[in-house]
């Protein structure tokens, strides 16, 4: 009896999990399906999941209109901003744990506080300031803004991690004759890998997925990011659903791949940052 209940319970759990997976993945698969249909099949009734005559025309159109350059721009901004943010934020996170930094509490409040400022509310003033500094509509504009958004998060996350690493570990390394630099390089950073990767992944998702900052801070087509380029297919002639969904597929692949590769760290890093924060 009890055994039977457990079995049905388990079956129900599996069924619910499967249903949840369908609800989560279904829309993405539907986007993929649409992106492979020709224009006059897209609105076909009833809709078909497997396209009758699959076509790559929408992807070809994206390439013909130079969307791959926007893809590379997005990649560039993302990599630069994430590298910078993790380096600067990680350093700060470390220092906040290991050193008697003046006004530590205030700094923590600052980092926490800026995470709460709706970044798009700052876009109007930021644009004006950037123009004055001459970085508006340059390759620097977006990496700076993305990095500044990610740094508080990186601080928060690495701080939580370093707080759990016993100080003795580093001291042991120093006693063993490592220089401070070696100690950092060979002991501290490897140990902090999960937190650093989690912060980097968060930064990646933020920078790669941003739309509003990119559309206000960059105007030249050759500096444009992928989400901004996509919105052009919802343009003057109405929505080109085929091209839009092809764009959705292209925009979604990199974060998903990255996420699958690093999921262990991501999940670990986030949970560590939260539980021990």
């Amino acid at each position: 009896m009890n055994q039977g209940m457990r079995l049905t319970g388990r079956a129900a759990l599996l069924a619910a999990s499967a249903l949840a997976s369908v609800v989560v993945l279904g829309p993405i698969i539907w986007a993929l399906s649409t992106s492979l249909k020709s224009d006059n099949h897209i609105f076909a009734v009833p809709p078909r999941l497997i396209p009758d005559e699959p076509t790559l025309m929408h992807f070809q159109r994206l390439v013909a209109e130079g969307v791959q350059w926007s893809f590379l721009n997005s990649a560039f901004y993302t990599v630069v901003s994430v590298a910078f943010a993790v380096a600067v934020g990680g350093t700060a996170g470390y220092a906040l744990v290991r050193y008697p930094v003046p006004a530590k509490r205030a700094l923590l409040v600052l980092f926490m506080g800026v995470m709460s400022i709706p970044s798009y509310a700052l876009l109007l003033p930021t644009q004006v300031i950037f123009v004055r500094l001459g970085i508006f509509d340059t390759r620097l504009a977006l990496p700076i803004l993305y990095a500044a958004h990610v740094i508080p998060f990186a601080v928060w996350m690495t701080r939580a991690h370093f707080a759990t690493v016993p100080r003795e570990l580093e001291q042991a390394a120093l006693v063993d004759g490592y220089s401070r630099f070696e100690a950092v390089w060979k002991v501290i950073i490897p140990g902090a890998r999960p937190a650093l990767i989690a912060a980097a992944a968060f930064g990646f998702l933020y920078a790669w997925n941003d739309y509003i900052t990119a559309t206000t801070m960059v105007e030249s087509p050759d500096l444009r990011t992928l989400p901004v380029a996509l919105i052009f297919f919802q343009g003057f002639h109405g929505r080109d659903w085929g091209a839009l969904m092809a764009g959705v597929v292209i925009a979604t692949l990199p974060p998903i791949v990255l996420f699958l590769v690093y999921r262990r760290y991501l999940i670990g890093g986030f949970s560590e940052g939260s539980v021990k924060g």
Partner: peptide, 21 residues
């Protein structure tokens, strides 16, 4: 006055400016 200042700063940041106004 932004153009003036912008121009100055742009000179410093030149290598990063792919193309701009």
């Amino acid at each position: 006055r932004s153009a003036l200042k912008g121009g100055l700063a742009a000179g410093v940041a030149m290598p990063f400016i792919a193309r701009s106004g």
